[in-house]
Simulated scan of single mutants.
Amino acid sequence: MTLTALAIDDEPRALEVIQMHAAKVPFVALSATFTDAFEAIPYLQEHRIDLLFLDIKMPDISGIELLDCLQKVPMVIFSTAYSEFAVKGFELNAVDYLLKPYSLARFAQACNKALEVKQLRQTVIFSDTTSVAPFIFVKTGYEQEKVWLKDICYLEAEGNYVNYVLRDRQLLSRQSLAESLLSLPEQQFLRVHRSFVVAVAHVQKISRHGVWVGDREIPVGASFEERLEKLRTILKI
C-alpha cells in the first residue's frame, strides 16, 4: 500500500527535509511540494492525495485555514516549529504533529500512523467498493452520537462548532467543517461554501447562486461555484 503525499511549508529548507525523509520511507510517494499554500489548493482539488504534510504558521493563510478551503481533506501530519499549536492540530484529527526539528525516526513513526489510518478506513468498505459505512458518530459534548448518513440534510459552521442539520433534529459538535468532512463520503456530501456542506440526496433545487435543501436556500460561495457543475453532474440535471 502506498500513500500519495503532498507537502506545504513556506520554508524551502523544511520542504527539503520532508523530501529527504520521504525518500527513505518506502510506502510514501511525495508527489509535489509547495511554499505557497494558495498555489497548492488547485493541486489538492485536482489530484488524489492521501497524506498532507502541512506547516501551520504561514504568511497570508495558516495551515488550519487552508484545510477549511478544501472540499476533501486528506490525512494531515502537521509540521511546525510552534508547539502551542499542538492541541489545535489534534482537535482537527491530525494523524500526527511533528515539532521541528525532527528526526527520520520520528518522521517514519508519523508516516506509519498514517498508513494504519488508511488501512483502518478500508475495513469499513463493504464488498461493493462504492459503499461505505452508512453511519458516523458525532461528538456532542462528552458523548458520541450515532448518526445515519441518510438523515443528514446539511452541515453549517457556527464559530468553533458545526451544526449537523438532520431530518428530525440538530446536533452541535465542537469541530471545524474541514474536520467533519473527514468522516463523510465525498460522493454523498459536497462543500458549497466556507460555512456549508450539503447532502446531495437532499438537494431539491439548484439556483444561480445557491442550492435548496428542503425550504432552506444554501448559498454557494464565489470560490465554490464550480461545485454547482459537479452537483448537476451527480444529479444528472
Rank of each mutant, 00 (worst) to 15 (best):
D68Q: 14
L15W: 02
E226N: 12
R208T: 15
E46V: 02
Q187W: 00
S79C: 15
L115M: 14
Y161W: 05
H21G: 09
S183N: 11
K88H: 09
F224M: 06
A14N: 12
V147C: 06
S31D: 10
D128M: 01
R121P: 00
D10Y: 04
D96S: 08
V76I: 14
A29V: 15
A108M: 09
L120P: 00
V117I: 14
V165H: 14
K146C: 01
S127F: 01
L70Y: 07
H202S: 05
L177W: 03
S195R: 09
L155F: 04
L3A: 09
L3N: 13
S127V: 12
Q19L: 07
L235W: 00
V197Y: 03
V73M: 07
S207Y: 12
P12I: 00
L190K: 06
K118A: 10
A110V: 10
V132T: 15
H209V: 12
A7P: 00
A110K: 10
F196V: 07
Y43L: 02
P101F: 03
N93E: 13
I18L: 13
S62L: 05
P134A: 03
S31F: 03
I41T: 10
P42K: 13
L70D: 03
C153A: 09
D68I: 06
E11S: 11
A5P: 11
K205S: 07
N163D: 08
P101M: 11
L51T: 10
E143W: 01
V28S: 03
S83T: 15
E158V: 12
R48Q: 11
N112R: 13
Q204I: 00
L115G: 04
K57W: 00
K24N: 11
Q175K: 11
F90S: 04
K236M: 04
V73S: 09
P42C: 09
L30G: 11
Q119W: 01
I206H: 03
L177H: 04
K88G: 08
Q119I: 13
K118C: 04
V147D: 02
L235N: 01
C153N: 10
A178R: 07
T130Q: 12
Q144Y: 12
V192S: 09
A199M: 06
S31C: 07
T123C: 01
R106Q: 12
G63P: 10
E16W: 04
T130H: 08
